[in-house]
Amino acid sequence: MTDFAEIWSYLARGPLLWLTATLVAYAVGDACFRAAGRKPWANPVLIAVALLAGLLWLTDTPYPTYFEGAQFVHFLLGPATVALALPLWDNLPHVRRAALPLLAALVTGSVVAAASAVAIARAFGITGEVLASLAPKSATAPVALGISERLGGSPTLTAVLVILTGIIGAICTTPLLNALGIRDWRARGFATGVAAHGIGTARAFQVHPVAGAFAGLGMGLNAVLTAFVAPLVLRLFQ
């Protein structure tokens, strides 16, 4: 009979174990999220990442070994970005009707998100790879990772910053917009999607369907705009 250590060393080298572990960790994270009543602080991605990071540390597994299995999930980020065409297409009539306010909110939100992040970070003495990883943090993750890579940032660090931005946006948006006295669901949802991408969009859908549709639209449009804004802002502050 083969002993457990041998089986483990065989499995730990192949992609099957870590692909399965990724899906299990996400399933656990999603179950926690549902159990917590879909509160934004119980983010399933954050829970899954914490579980996997702990598992890698416990089993002394290097990240590249893990990634050989997880890359099959990671690859889908590209097709997922392309698939964002669908919600954008579905909302095209809305876009035509409110084109100018949407354009103003998109440009303002996108520029403020990138410029304030880079400016404040610069004031704290953050430079180089970390600064470049921050610039695209309001864009949806698949897009932000691509931009970060092109700017000389670290895609894995950007992934973490993007997720944290989404969680912060999802928690802050309702009290913030109430305090500002903004009642238009289109303005509320759209600004949330621009600044806090998919996690903010999920939150907007919980609050109001119109806010949700406009948040998805904001996320999709900012994915395109951030690709242009982030390199410009970074050049300005470097």
Binding site: T22, L23, A25, Y26, D30, P44, V45, L46, A48, V49, L52, Y66, F67, A70, Q71, V73, H74, L76, L77, A80, A141, P142, L145, P155, T156, T158, A159, V160, V162, I163, G198, I199
Partner: peptide, 8 residues
């Protein structure tokens, strides 16, 4: 959300 896990 699942797709962010490997990079995260």
């Amino acid at each position: 959300s699942l797709l962010f896990v490997p990079a995260g």
